[in-house]
Computed example of a mutant assay.
Amino acid sequence: MDVTFTQVAEVRIIALRDKPVPFRAALRYSSTDPLAVQVILPAEATRGGWPRTWVFARDLLSEGLNKDAGSGSVRIWSCCPSGTVLEFHSAGEILPVQFRTAVLARFLRCSYALVAPGKEDVGGALERSLDSVMRDGPVQRE
């Protein structure tokens, strides 16, 4: 059975010159894509003014809760004892978003309860993705 869950989180964009801007983001995990997590940012959080969805490895999020992690478009680092920053990079934009570490850890625990690490059915997820692309064409994410 395919299960998806979403957790809403109060977060802040960390700006260099301004006071941090609070908003709500969503964390999403789906058993149909068991190796990935999604962070969904609302339009008011992005420079372009449209919602953005970032998809990255669940293992990266786990690693980032223990030490600095990532080197590509998603980087994760601790900013204080109770805060973790997910830093999103795209087309000349860097968007550092601060989450409460406890919120990210709870989200990961819930994802592990759904699909335990090492028990991901990657073959099934790949097959469903290929079927979807063949049927509907590639998915465009902004």
Rank of each mutant, 00 (worst) to 15 (best):
M1D: 10
M1P: 14
V3Q: 12
V3R: 14
T6P: 07
T6G: 09
Q7L: 14
A9N: 10
E10I: 02
E10D: 07
I13G: 11
I13P: 12
I13R: 15
R17P: 00
D18N: 14
D18P: 03
K19G: 04
P22R: 06
F23K: 07
F23D: 11
A25N: 09
A26N: 09
A26I: 00
A26P: 07
R28T: 00
Y29C: 07
Y29E: 00
S31N: 14
P34M: 05
L35Y: 13
V37E: 03
Q38S: 15
V39P: 02
E44W: 05
R47C: 11
R47N: 11
G49A: 10
W50T: 06
W50Y: 02
P51V: 00
P51R: 12
P51M: 01
R52D: 06
R52S: 12
T53W: 04
T53R: 15
W54A: 12
F56H: 11
A57W: 03
R58Y: 05
L60N: 10
S62W: 04
S62F: 07
G64S: 11
K67Y: 00
K67I: 01
K67N: 09
D68Y: 04
A69N: 03
G70K: 09
S71R: 15
S71V: 09
G72V: 02
R75W: 00
W77Q: 08
S78R: 14
S78P: 11
C80I: 02
P81G: 08
P81C: 09
G83V: 00
T84M: 12
V85C: 14
L86K: 05
L86S: 04
F88D: 00
H89D: 12
A91Y: 03
G92M: 09
G92I: 04
G92N: 08
I94V: 14
L95A: 10
P96R: 12
P96L: 06
Q98G: 04
R100S: 10
T101Q: 13
T101R: 14
T101A: 15
A102G: 11
A102K: 10
V103F: 04
A105E: 11
F107P: 12
F107E: 02
R109I: 03
R109C: 02
C110N: 12
C110A: 14
Y112N: 03
Y112L: 03
Y112G: 03
A113K: 12
L114S: 13
L114F: 01
V115A: 00
P117T: 01
E120N: 03
D121M: 02
V122F: 05
G123M: 08
G124F: 05
A125H: 07
A125N: 02
A125E: 03
L126S: 06
E127M: 07
E127S: 08
E127W: 05
R128S: 13
R128F: 02
R128M: 08
S129Y: 07
D131A: 15
S132D: 09
V133N: 04
M134D: 09
R135K: 10
D136I: 05
D136T: 08
P138N: 05
P138D: 03
P138H: 09
V139I: 11
V139Y: 06
Q140N: 10
Q140M: 13
R141F: 15
E142G: 15
E142L: 14
